[in-house]
Nucleic acid binder design. Sequence first.
RNA 1: GGGCCCGUAGCUUAGCCAGGUUGAGCGCACGGCUGAUAACCGUGAGGUCACGCGUUCAAAUCGCGUCGGGCCCA
Length: 923
Amino acid sequence: MTAQFQILGAWLDWEDPYMTLKNEYLEAAWWTLKKAHENNLLERGLRVVNWCPRCQTAIADSEVEYWDETDYSIYVKFPVIGEENTYIVIWTTTPWTIPANVAVAVNPSFQYSRVRAWKDGKAEILIMASDLVESVLKTGRYQDYELFSTLTAEQMQELTYSHPLGDMVPRQKDILHKVYAADFVTAENTGCVHIAPGHGLEDYELGMKNHMEIFCPVGGDGRYTAEAGEKYQGLYVKEADSEVITDLEAQGRLLASGRLAHRYGHCWRCKTPIIFIATSQWFLRISDLRDKMLDEVSRITWYPEWAGSARFADWINNARDWCISRQRYWGIPLPIWTCPACGHLEVIGTSAELEERSGQKLVDLHRPDVDQVFLECPCGGKMTRSPDVFDVWFDSAVASWATLRFPSHKEEFSDWWPADFITEGHDQTRGWFYSQLGASMVSFGRAPYKSVLMHGFTLDDQGRKMSKSIGNIVQPEEVVQKFGADILRFYVLGANAPWEDLHFSWDGVENTSRMLNIFWNAYRFALPYMVLDKFDAGKADLSRYESNLRPEDRWILSRVNSLIEDVTAEMDGYQLHRIVRSISDFILEDLSRWYIQLVRPRTWIEQDDPDKLAAYATIYEVLVKLSQIMAPFTPFISESIYQNLVKGLDEGAPQSVHMCNWPQAQKERIDKRLEESMSLVREASMAASNARQKGGRKLRWPVSEIVIAPAKEGLDLGGLENVLKGQTNSKKITVLAAGEKPKMDLEIAPVHKKIGPVYKGEAKLVVEAIAAADPFVVKKQLACGDATVSIAGKEYKITAEMVSIKELPPQNLPAAEFSRGFVYVDITLTPELEAEGYAREIIRRIQDMRKELDLRVEDQIRAVVDIESKPILDLAMRKKDHIASEVRAADFQLGLGLPLQGKLVKDWDIEGICVRIGIERAA
RNA sequence: GGGCCCGUAGCUUAGCCAGGUUGAGCGCACGGCUGAUAACCGUGAGGUCACGCGUUCAAAUCGCGUCGGGCCCA
């Protein structure tokens, strides 16, 4: 468990874990119980438990194993008082519980029948559920019957009966046997259920509710006690079944008897069939504290809110007294001593108190030593310890103060208690959330925690529980081994809200892995350059470059500070999934897809240029801030980055990122208008890419102009024109006025129907003249009257209705829509633009070859480029120096028919032209 | 039987508390980029927001009910 937590990066005090077996911890439980006693909240009472008669102990529900067992199945007649020869018929599979019968239960919505039934010439009157009469009488081999009357459940409850074995069980003579209504009665067997509150859970509940006697004439050894009467005393109950049946038969109370295979519970240790018996137990009177507890629940902050106001409050409303005792050997012993002579009771709170009271000092407060400690009773008697131990839930219930070594140490307790925050799964409503509250209420009268995050479970990708039988279990270690702890953490935290069940999917993990890999790449991106440029603490100091910051630098700094604000706010509400999303978005959208793209050319500047250094300092600042806010989510990556970037440059920095203070947003760096402008620029840039795609112009080829036509006023590029130029690879950005469009092409077409009647034989010439005319001139003339077109020196007047003029987006101006309007890209080529395009094509190929040769960034090369087309060569020649410097060529030849040389020689096809390139590393 | 939560694209989900044209990732198809490169980017197709009724000018969102899944209780 510890190793599991550690590989996940959980940070706890591993050297000093709390152990419930330490005396110090045990004393916290003792102290608490003593407080409960002082507050009059400790009580002794009976309670039905699962009991193993061989181990002689109560066992928990989860320790019961079920399998089929063949038992008796008997129908018994209970004689109704005041009605001659009349019986209520019940059914049971445990004849041995009949001596403990106290009542009969009926379903409040069933109808019951009184029937007269004949068997072998004798008649008797039987009462059972109307729907079950036929089957019961058949089982009892009755030959005939008639309906006597029907009874409602209310009428049933007016009946009383005498115990069928009243003569053998003397105690039964004092018990009034009545009929009660209970929802758990089903329409099976007779519809009347035998109730023995000492031998069944539902029976016990019903018995408590109706103040029945909890009669249990069976001891912990599974044998009848004297209360069962002389006949049965000492008999082991499972062996008593046949005895009871024989006696019922003899009394004429057995209607039928058979055998039945059914599921029955067994002790997980010794496989003995369990029995239910009422035992004497210790209770905390939680029900007395209900209103106060609800009050506390409303004071606690719950995440989500309904975990407290709805779910936990509902549980508290239904909470019964808490049975804290268990008949076990291992566990925290109950510190309760009683006097067998006078019944006097004392609860011991500490080991010191025990020593003072008994004169004995114990090294270990557990059993068996503690069982040998006796106290002197004021009456002179010898007080002995109640042999029970605490319910293990009580161990966890006192955790909040036991782990602070209270009550033996007071200082830590006053500093730290109550806890600010606890978290557990939604099954712990009844568990840890409740046990801690209960124990704290009885001892301190308030909740031991201020806030609770109730989290969900991890299910498989289809929302099913992970289980061995389905084979869908995924171990955290497996994910950590394949992807790493940070990826598992980030995935789990981001997949959905913390309080919802997680549908684990490997795809999701893989996706997270890709995302964090981009983050890692973003971090690594700047490193080689920083190393080359001998980056140090001085260069990391952003304040030295304040005046050199470009708008995009100020933008990413604004964004990272906005991110800190957002994450801090969401952290306060445990909206962890939203935080992961914000961080992912920042890394992908802002840092990787945008800022790093913008900053790349600056990192290639050779000397210590302040423009480059400002970019480094900015990236440095962003990465350090990120490592700090990501530390709780991805502790390992964060630490690695921190150690390198912060600790590596400054020995005096905190030892670990996890020891840094939570970063505060620098408000003066946040510029929402700049952020707004940048998102506009990004959108426009994407629209431009879209338009380029439509116009068939690759991004590598520069364009002369980008035209933005906003639909509304108020489009502010915020000084980011250069960013837009760079990202769209364009020479000029034009923003039109709202509603204005760039100049459209006009298409002019003759309307023959109107021209024909006017010009008759000359119509054909007019049509030709229109086709030859400048549409813009024609349109302008038509705007203020008729227009004139001419052909072969002859002029014709035409009216507006003789032509149709349509606006067409020009071929060289593809457009794309974005949220604020349209973006047009002018893709008209000029020799200068073409030269640049070819230059970039050649540069890209040479870079590709450098990579193939595995050259380092700073390596110089010798390169020869042979271009087979003279016009293209001429274009490329214009950019010869530019190409040489971009690819770091110390020696660069560009020409036609050059002899190729170099370590690597390759033929390339650039826009259909063969370009042959040879390169090698310069000495 | 009771309380609470969940149901949105093929899959995983955001949005729901504070009503105003459902947003993303994966997968799929097409295209682009190339010194972060066993990466990366763009475009496109794909949704009766489980179902029904109600409140409202307007409902994925609020209310009631039904169905399906989960946790807890009886």
